[in-house]
Amino acid sequence: MADPFLIGEAMTGGYGKGPDILHECTIAVDKGEIAVIVGPNGAGKSTAMKAVFGMLDVRSGAVRLDGREITALSPQDRVARGMGFVPQTSNIFGAMSVEENLEMGAFIRRDDIRGTMEQVYDLFPILRDKRHQAAGELSGGQRQQVAVGRALMTQPQVLMLDEPTAGVSPIVMDELFDRIIEVARTGISILMVEQNARQALEIADKGYVLVQGRNAHTGSGKDLLADPEVRRSFLGG
């Protein structure tokens, strides 16, 4: 069997010289798929994604992108290989305009970025309207759109989102999820950590339930939503 497009396989590791937070944890996503990591607070969800992105030490296991091992690469090198990462907080330059934020996202590119910027504005029309406004003045949902748009400016093959709907209203959450589905339809792989587990699994091709840094349940979003144990333990019945 060929590897998925991106896989963090049997990852064990933690931050610096600290204890292991992940224990033989495996996370994977294929081309154009949406994979969602859910689980209780402190389960290691964001840590697993950061491990895939190279932000902590993977002491055993491996990360592979498009068949190539990238376990030893820095996050910057992974961006150059086609990975985009949107952290949960501090993910925009508040004093810069929306358009300047998007331009900053294209820092590794040497070609004409205007076409990609138009694609971002088509995906998030409100950003076109507010392109000259300081990003820090926008609503929470609009700031998240700026953060996702900026990551898309690198033309990533994989887009990684850490709690993209944290702190936004249910209406804004639904709209963000709709845009995420649109991004996946262009062939970009989406790997996402979400607290809104039920809604996230509804749009997920793959779901990973983590507990204490280990894989507890893995399956399609539909299968996990239908699993009585997952429903009882993680989805409120």
Results as ranks from 00 to 15, higher is better:
64 R>V: 13
111 D>Q: 04
136 G>F: 13
88 Q>L: 07
125 P>Y: 00
80 A>Q: 09
165 T>Y: 12
214 R>T: 09
90 S>P: 07
179 R>N: 10
20 D>Y: 13
6 L>G: 08
120 V>R: 02
84 G>T: 07
101 N>E: 00
151 A>M: 06
129 D>F: 10
179 R>C: 13
151 A>P: 02
183 V>T: 08
59 R>K: 15
39 G>R: 12
88 Q>P: 02
150 R>H: 07
135 A>L: 11
155 Q>A: 10
11 M>S: 05
189 S>K: 00
24 E>M: 00
86 V>W: 03
33 E>V: 05
225 L>F: 11
227 D>K: 09
68 R>F: 06
201 L>A: 02
53 F>G: 01
194 E>S: 04
173 M>W: 09
217 H>C: 04
89 T>L: 07
159 L>Y: 14
213 G>E: 15
67 G>P: 14
58 V>F: 05
109 R>P: 02
125 P>C: 02
149 G>A: 05
88 Q>W: 10
7 I>N: 01
204 A>N: 00
228 P>Q: 06
31 K>H: 11
24 E>H: 02
125 P>N: 01
58 V>C: 06
77 D>V: 00
101 N>R: 00
187 G>P: 02
198 R>Y: 15
43 A>T: 07
88 Q>D: 09
186 T>K: 12
211 V>F: 01
92 I>A: 00
115 G>D: 11
236 G>E: 07
31 K>R: 15
35 A>I: 08
188 I>P: 08
88 Q>N: 06
22 L>I: 09
187 G>M: 03
109 R>T: 05
66 D>S: 13
